[in-house]
Design a protein around this nucleic acid. Sequence first.
DNA 1: GAGTGGTCTAGACCACAGG
DNA 2: CTGTGGTCTAGACCACTCT
Lengths: 235, 235
Amino acid sequence: MQKYRKIYQDIVLKIMNRQWQHMLPSEHELSQMYEASRETIRKALALLSQEGYIQKVHGKGSLIIEKQMLDFPVSGIVSFKEMMHKQGIEATTSVELLEQVQADAYQADCLDISVGTSMWQLIRVREINGEKVILDLDYLNQEIVEQLPMAACQDSIYEYLEGQLGLGISFAQKEITVENPTAHDIQLLDMEGFSNVVVIRSKVYLEDARLFQFTESRHRPDKFRFVDFARRVHG
Amino acid sequence: MQKYRKIYQDIVLKIMNRQWQHMLPSEHELSQMYEASRETIRKALALLSQEGYIQKVHGKGSLIIEKQMLDFPVSGIVSFKEMMHKQGIEATTSVELLEQVQADAYQADCLDISVGTSMWQLIRVREINGEKVILDLDYLNQEIVEQLPMAACQDSIYEYLEGQLGLGISFAQKEITVENPTAHDIQLLDMEGFSNVVVIRSKVYLEDARLFQFTESRHRPDKFRFVDFARRVHG
DNA sequence: GAGTGGTCTAGACCACAGG
DNA sequence: CTGTGGTCTAGACCACTCT
C-alpha cells in the first residue's frame, strides 16, 4: 500500500472517530506526524477532498464536512452485495437466466463487440424484505470473462472478477432514466401498481480501458434513491 | 490561470479536435512540449482522468476514453442556464414566486439555520419546447445572499452569485428519488398524465464550506436523464 | 508578520509493459 | 533492455487569512 493511501485511510478513521472535530491539523503538522513530505500529505488530502470528507480553504486549513448518512447510494461503482452489506439490509438474489449466447445487434452495440461474438447473458432478481424490487440484466464479454460460474452470479460477480480472475475494475459510464415497465418487469417484479421503473444503464471498464460489462438495472421507483457528492467545475 | 489548468484545457481541446486519437504523448514528451515539470503535467492528467477523458495504464500510457454525448447531465454542479446553453436547447424560465420569508422548521433544517432566520424563497418553472416540465423550489440563506434581484432569478442565479457577489460555489450533496406529484406539481407543470416526478434535492456549499442554498428540482419523468462518470474505489 | 494552503520544480527510485 | 507511469522528496515562491 502506498504511503499517501495509508495516510488517507488513517485520516478517514480519525474523522470517523471524531478525533478531529472541525478541522484537520495543518499540512505542515501532518507532514511531521506522518513523517512524509508536504506533497505526499497533499495527495492524501486531495483524495479526502474528492470523496467529500474535507473542504480546503486557502489561508485557513482543511474543514471537515459532515457527511449525511447514505441510504441507497448508486454513486460510484459498487456491487449489489457490497451496497447491501454496507447498509446492513437483508437481501437475496435469484438467478433467472445464465447462458452463453452470440451477441445480436443491440447487445453487440452495448458491449462494443461484433455481432455474433460470444457473450454471457444474465438475468437476476433482487429481493429486499421479501419484495422483488430490482431486475438486473447483464451482458459480459466472454473474451474477457471466459467462465462465469452460477455460484458467482448468486453471490457477487465483482468479487469473482477481482478475486478469482484478478481483473481490475476501474470506471463506468452510467445513465439513469425513468421508463414504463416492460412485460418482463411486470412478470418478474412485485410492481404493486407502480407505473414506472427507474433504469440505470452502465458500461463498466477495466483498468486497461477494455469494456467488459453492460448492465441494465431496473428498480421499482419507491425503492430507488441515489445520493451523490459533486464538486463544481469552474471555467 | 494556473499552468496545469491551462495544460488541462489545451489537452481537452486536442482530444476534442482529434489531434490525438487513441493515446496521449508520454508524460516526458508532454513536459517538454509544455515546458513544465513532470509533476505539473501529472496534475493536468489527474484532472483529465477525474473528468473521464483518459484512462492511465501503468507502463503503457494514457488512453483516450470516447465520451458518449450527454443529453441531460445533472452530474456535477451546473446551472440550468449553463446546461441548456451547452445542449443548445431552447428553454425559458418563469419566476412564480420570489419573496423574503422567515424560515419554518422544515426550511431551517434544509439550510442548517435557526427557525425564524431570514431567507429567500423562490419558485420557478422551466419550459422546454413549449412544455412546462421542471419545477424548481429554492431556499437561499439571506445572511449570505443579501439581495436577490428578480433579473438574476430569470437569468441565472449562479452567474449573479459568482459574477456580481463574488461568491465561490464549491460542492453539493444531492439526492435523487422518484415520487408522486403534489397538487403544486399538477398545477404548475404540464404533467400529461404522467404519474410520477423525479425529485433532485441538493444542498449547495461555498468554497468556505458554508451552506447557502437548498434546491428541490422536480422533473417530469420523460424529460429526465442523468449521466454520470464514476471510478471504482478500492479498499 | 506569522501561519496557512496553492503551485511548480528537479531529481530520485520503483513497478510494469513490450520488444 | 528501454520507455512508460507511480511515488516520494526537499525546497522554493506565491496568495490568502488572521491578528
